[in-house]
Amino acid sequence: MIDLPFYKPHGNEIELFEHAFRKQLPLLIKGPTGCGKTRFVSFMAKKIGLPLYTVSCHDDLTASDLVGRHLIGDGVTYWNDGPLTRAVREGGICYLDEVVEARKDTTVVLHPLSDDRRILPIERTGEILSAPPEFMLVVSYNPGYQNFLKGMKPSTRQRFVSLRFDFPEPELEQQIVIGETGVDAMLAKRLVNLANSLRTLKEHDLEEAASTRLLVYAATLISSGFDPMDACRAALVEPLTDDEETAEALMEIVYASFGK
């Protein structure tokens, strides 16, 4: 029996992932930050039993960071595979987290891998690798970020089967908080209600909604014996805003749930 990480499905995402894997389709997961995208992928990798190569994309990420590059040795150069190439050679899930953060010319190397050719041409060594059936490409991004000069090329986006994640329903989220931290049901319920109050402020007063991850942080602090109100300030209020007045208002919402 393998030790699976904790994961509560929202809907049919496990089934979809398995079908996509079997039929060798690449998968795109979109959803707000901290709603369980990365957890889902590592859960699925464990469940199917494949190695997982995770790349966190950033705007300095070049194609050679994915594919590989020549390194200088003692008088010679030798080729070193990047994570994408390694996943293609050995079979496994290559997971590109926050793929829009990478420059667009970088993601173009994914194109031949993500259609029916499933090949990875390596220009510098002249190799053409074709992906084994165990290889799967998964990318994720957060559509909420208004990254002006970035954004996914439609031609890239069109190559993926897409899955939308959102924050779970209150009852499910309570179970997740309980499952992750072992807090009691009453506290989980209060935290989830609080998070849902805070989420209604998205776009008007806050840039980002309170994530399930932050809720789990707050619950973890509380269950290890930290004062609930201070835990909420540290894990839910301060991470969401830098503005002092807004932070005070958010604390009022916390007081309304936890008493003062």
């Binding site: 109050s197 805070l198 209604t200 402020l201 008007h204 007063d205 007045e245 807004t246 005070e248 208002a249 958010l250 009022e252 919402i253 309304a256």
Partner: peptide
């Protein structure tokens, strides 16, 4: 004023 607006909206008032 600002707190009032934020509280009202977060508690389900019309934004």
């Amino acid at each position: 004023g600002k707190t009032a607006g934020i509280l009202f909206r977060s508690w389900g008032g019309d934004s």
